[in-house]
């Protein structure tokens, strides 16, 4: 008996031309450089966008994007591709170094009327990093309540910024890296999601900003967290971004990068320093250079 084997329809693979189009679009909008190994990522990130738009497949979505003038769907596609995963207190060690050494050192150096602390989380994605810093400040430095403390967080994705501002996280997200004691203290459950308290939300100012394109007006920054952002840029863009952000840092200010990132061989005006078990890059003063 001849039984017909049910045919599974495999999704059409993304052609080289389609991938090149997506790559240029992403590069043009964000300066993020996608290499050929990122085809899987493009596929995975664009699938939900296609579904939401009622488009049958990723390939059809790309064809649609190619044949239409730049619009909302292009923005959504680019943002979905460049969004990075993050978690509360990611990697722990840098946060420990901030709490135990970096912030106390900065605070000790401030006397008289200069009692201000400015922190910028660049490429904040869904907001866990700035909120982790905010919770840590509230938890460990109550004396900052009498200081001028400013906490900025920026991202290239407007969608991610809206999410960050709402401070709403899934059970999976609060289950990852967030100490339960902080969850109970700073979050409220709303159905299946958890929302960070207004007290912490109000500590963070969210800004839409493209690190590779836009000039940003900020007060000089003591600590700049830009973790797992540089890895997406080519060397030339890395240099340009480092040069720009260095100008935002106070002399001696601290730059936090991701574990796979460095300023070495890119910008010699940063000094690599070990703080506890973490590594920071300090903006050198003109004299020190």
């Amino acid at each position: 008996m001849n039984r017909e084997i049910p045919r599974v329809r495999l999704p059409e693979p993304i052609s080289a031309a389609d991938f090149d189009y997506v790559r240029s679009l992403v590069r043009e909008k964000t300066a993020v450089a996608l290499d050929e190994t990122k085809v899987y990522l493009v596929n995975a990130r664009l699938l939900p966008i296609a579904r939401n738009a009622g488009i049958r497949s990723v390939v059809d979505l790309i064809r649609h994007l190619r044949s239409h003038p730049l619009g909302e769907l292009h923005t959504q596609a680019v943002e979905a591709i460049v969004t990075t995963e993050t978690s509360f207190f990611r990697d722990f060690i840098p946060f420990e170094a901030l709490r135990q050494e970096v912030i106390p050192e900065i605070m000790e150096g401030r006397t008289g009327s200069d009692r201000s602390l400015t922190i910028w989380s660049a490429g904040c994605s869904s907001g866990q990093e700035p909120y982790s810093i905010a919770m840590m400040l509230r938890e460990s430095f109550p004396e900052l309540s009498t200081w001028r403390t400013r906490l900025f967080a920026s991202d290239v994705s407007k969608g991610m910024l809206e999410r960050s501002k709402s401070g709403t996280y899934s059970q999976t997200e609060v289950n990852r890296g967030l100490p339960a004691r902080m969850m109970v203290k700073y979050f409220r459950q709303q159905g299946s999601t958890w929302r960070i308290n207004r007290e912490i939300r109000d500590m963070v100012s969210f800004i839409h900003h493209n690190l590779a394109r836009d000039i940003l007006s900020l007060p000089p920054v003591d600590i700049l967290a830009m973790r797992n952002v540089l890895i997406y840029f080519d060397v030339e863009t890395k240099r340009m971004v480092l040069d720009r952000i260095r100008r935002h840092l106070k002399p001696g200010g601290f730059l936090m990068l991701g574990t796979a990132e460095t300023t070495l061989n890119l910008d010699e005006r940063f000094q690599r320093v070990r703080v506890g078990r973490a590594v920071f890059y300090r903006a050198m003063t003109a004299e020190a250079r």
Partner: peptide, 29 residues
């Protein structure tokens, strides 16, 4: 996974709380 349960466990003396389902990374964290 109720807020009150987490609070109750910490109050009773638990140091940490992980909600099922979780993955290896979450447990290691």
């Amino acid at each position: 996974t109720e807020f009150e349960r987490v609070a109750q466990a910490l109050q009773a003396g638990a140091d940490e709380y992980i909600m099922k389902p979780f993955d290896r990374e979450m447990l290691l964290d």
